[in-house]
Design a protein around this nucleic acid. Structure first.
Lengths: 140, 140
DNA sequence: ATCTTAATGTAGCCCCGGCTACATAAGGGT
DNA sequence: ACCCTTATGTAGCCGGGGCTACATTAAGAT
């Protein structure tokens, strides 16, 4: 970077902040998707177990995510995804798979690939994801 | 992952949360390091400009970072890094450079490499960083 | 030295993501 | 039907990172 100029910028930090607030929604949406696939329903208790937080934190998170139109309460079956929730879950899962594979092919162990993917996946641009995809097709 | 098991875990989420809280410290420490290099001092005002937040947010962040022993107030010259602050800045800068380079070699544009590196760099394990380093030496 | 402006600091509010403790609703067992 | 347990929901607190508005301190200009 040019001398006298930091690489950091206001815009950048805004972006990172927004990403952080999306992470939680994405994680919940993915978890709900998996739960419904595996057990037919996604309840507070399940999510509490998955994320290792109190049921209160789960409830509040679900409320906000519901307000964002990603999930809906179901009669006595917990939560289900709305159309946009499903879209998010799908994209999110695809991206996760891509990043994990990428790391593995790069030579990272399976377990560490999982762990790192979960940290980084929310911070990658389309462009970088495409580059990873291309790398994968060239190296698999 | 095995059916019936989510890839998410309490431990994982703890880790991500801790990483988030470290991001700010790392960003400040790096910014202070750069400022001192470039202008001989790092003041609240400078940091405010760099991060695009109010001076109040800067002051509070600096307080916490000072409590963590990473920085120290200097007479009328703003802040300077302690030994461990310097260590963090160095590591952090090295890691940033590595990640940016890695992305560039992967085919990502310079500006997007910068942007994405800033999002991801706080979430990479040693193992993944080493893998990136190896990729770089094999592909430059 | 004084006056003005710029920089720093304080008070107090917001939202979000944690939490515990208590209150209700649902389900199961007998 | 009743009781007990498990699940869900509410109240209210903490800390972190955001903010504005106001107070103070430092620096420059005259």
């Amino acid at each position: 970077m040019a001398a006298g100029t930091s690489r950091k910028s206001a815009a950048r930090h805004d972006r990172v902040r927004r990403q952080h607030s999306d992470e939680l929604a994405e994680d919940y949406v993915e978890a709900i998707d998996e739960l419904i696939l595996e057990k037919g329903q996604a309840r507070v208790k399940d999510l509490q177990g998955i994320f290792g937080v109190s049921h209160v934190s789960v409830i509040r998170a679900l409320k906000r995510i519901e307000e964002r139109g990603l999930i809906m309460r179901e009669a006595r079956k917990g939560y289900k995804l709305t159309a946009s929730g499903k879209r998010m879950a799908k994209e999110s899962a695809e991206r996760h798979g891509l990043v994990v594979n990428f790391l593995k092919v790069l030579g990272v162990s399976a377990s560490q690939s999982e762990a790192d993917a979960e940290g980084m996946e929310h911070h990658l641009s389309r462009e970088t994801l495409v580059a990873m995809k291309e790398f994968l097709s060239a190296n698999e």
